[in-house]
Amino acid sequence: MRKTIDACGLSCPEPVLLLKQDIDDAEEIELHVDNQASVNNCCRFARSKGFCVSVGGGGGKYTLTLTKG
């Protein structure tokens, strides 16, 4: 199942919390965040859960594509 999460504008650690809620029953997740700290935190968490991560965007708008790997 593919999911989309909009975590833009949320304080640390809410983006990772939102990801944590959905990561167990998703095959692919598109995650939107707006700062580098959230990119780093979400990438680290997703990788620890066995997902492959690709990061796109920049300039304050990032899209992380997480695929179960």
Binding site: P13, V16, L17, K20, N41, R44, F45, S48
Partner: peptide, 8 residues
Amino acid sequence: RDAVMFKD
């Protein structure tokens, strides 16, 4: 916080 919540 991250150690407890995310094992990070």
